[in-house]
């Protein structure tokens, strides 16, 4: 494991921890998109189904369990514990527009026509668009809690760092993963606007407000 991948996984973990702490501390899930969290839960469940038959390492297994359980815990916090704080009226992105194209892409572009490979490909495409409801919600409200902004930033950094990881692995191991590489490029592009505003506002101590 190289440094890019390790830091990527850490920032991915950090993003989830930030989100859980925010919801618990403020006893509110205001500003957090339930739809995005639901899509991530779907991403993890469809991708990590291999936990039962494909052992990689203790690290890998531990992280898979962490991502699945922590995301389902967020769904629980939003749906049960702090339900009144979440306003579905501003979380209006149609998730069919992400799920359907991901399913089509998974059927066309995959590593083989087995249930496992199709689900894996589906999860990769789905992940590339899963942040859209959250970004859409941010655009509707125009501003966000600092922690929500840090959450999205940490998530963007995670995806960005996987790109140098794949370049590094291509150079040192000759390993190629075109599906994940392409999906990650798309995903990082979706964050570019957000990164720009984060840099120009949040980095200078200002409130996150859209122009």
């Amino acid at each position: 494991m190289n440094i890019f991948r390790f830091l990527a996984d850490l920032s991915h973990m950090a993003s989830i921890v930030i989100l859980i702490l925010q919801i618990r501390k403020t006893k509110s899930a205001a500003g957090v998109s339930y739809k995005t969290q639901f899509l991530y839960a779907l991403v993890f469940v469809t991708r990590y189904i291999d936990i039962f038959f494909h052992y990689v390492s203790l690290y890998n297994t531990f992280m898979k369990i962490f991502f699945v359980t922590s995301t389902i815990y967020i769904l629980y916090l939003m749906r049960v514990q702090y339900k009144p704080s979440h306003d579905p009226n501003i979380d209006t992105f149609r998730i069919e527009y992400i799920i359907a194209p991901s399913a089509v892409l998974a059927l066309i572009i995959n590593h083989g026509y087995t249930l496992y490979e199709i689900l894996w490909s589906f999860s990769v495409w789905l992940e590339s668009g899963a942040i859209l409801p959250q970004l859409f919600m941010l655009q509707r409200t125009g501003e966000a809690e600092t922690l929500t902004v840090h959450y999205i930033f940490a998530l963007g950094i995670y995806r960005l760092l996987y790109i140098p990881n794949w370049i590094y692995r291509y150079v040192t191991e000759g390993r190629v993963e075109p599906i994940a590489f392409l999906a990650s490029l798309i995903q990082t592009a979706l964050y570019s606007d957000f990164f720009y505003i984060y840099y120009t506002k949040v980095m200078q101590g200002k409130k996150f407000e859209l122009p």
Binding site: R5, D9, H12, R47, D50, H54, V56, N60, M63, K64, F67, H111, G112, E117, W120, Y162, N165, E173, G174, R175, V176, E177, A180
Partner: peptide
Amino acid sequence: SGDKADHDEL
């Protein structure tokens, strides 16, 4: 590696 899928990442 290369052609064969090797999903060892998260």
